[in-house]
């Protein structure tokens, strides 16, 4: 069977073609799921997120005028859904204690527990950042996109995205440090 190009699938799905929609989602949902998994830290929760994303896409696709903007549009929907899920308190179960003099990172299960706890803390602190910084930072960390692409997606100059990333980083580092987490040693020099 010949693969249909994305713009063709998008147009057909917008017109109510279920098969085109399934084919399109078969291509794109795994990427959205990967992003949601890293953001939410739970494969099942990520699947709930992409189920919601698929429903939003199906309802809103006729409103998408530019098929070339589909990837960014889908990323934005995924981020919004994940943020809502995270905010709804589903991550509360993953709340962790500060590291303190925690387990030896060299040990197997202990190291795994530490990695899990660290990731949960980062997710929690990221989700608490103001929307302004959160969106740029999460796209940069989890969206596999460059500063230029983020600027294009958000409709902002690249300089504004850079300054939001910089401010967002500082806020995140501050929050993590307050919670007892942070990279062991950060170099003292700034960005090149």
């Amino acid at each position: 069977m010949q693969l249909r190009p994305d713009p063709q699938l998008i147009a057909a799905a917008a017109d109510g073609d279920h098969e085109a929609f399934e084919e399109l989602m078969g291509r794109w949902l795994p990427r959205a799921h990967s992003m949601a998994r890293r953001m939410l830290g739970d494969a099942d929760l990520a699947e709930d997120a992409v189920a919601e994303v698929a429903a939003v896409v199906w309802r809103s696709l006729p409103a998408l005028r530019d098929a070339t903007a589909f990837a960014g549009w889908l990323r934005a929907i995924t981020l919004n859904v994940c943020r809502r899920l995270a905010r709804r308190g589903l991550l509360a179960a993953a709340a962790v204690e500060p590291r303190g003099d925690g387990p030896d990172p060299g040990a197997g299960p202990a190291a795994e527990a530490e990695t899990r706890a660290r990731a949960a803390a980062i997710r929690r602190e990221l989700a608490c950042l103001p929307e302004l910084y959160w969106r740029s930072l999460v796209l940069y960390y989890l969206g596999d996109v460059s500063v230029g692409e983020i600027a294009q997606e958000l409709g902002l100059p690249a300089g504004t995205v850079k300054s939001r990333l910089s401010r967002g980083r500082a806020l995140l580092a501050e929050r993590l440090a307050r919670a007892g987490w942070g990279p062991e040693e950060l170099p003292s020099e700034g960005r090149e």
């Binding site: 279920h18 929609f21 399934e22 084919e23 399109l24 989602m25 078969g26 291509r27 794109w28 949902l29 795994p30 799921h33 990967s34 990520a46 699947e47 992409v50 189920a51 698929a54 429903a55 896409v57 199906w58």
Partner: peptide
């Protein structure tokens, strides 16, 4: 998420 699973998710969403 595999492609088949993604298609199933899409079908259920519709």
């Amino acid at each position: 998420l595999t492609e088949d699973a993604a298609r199933r998710v899409a079908r259920e969403a519709v």
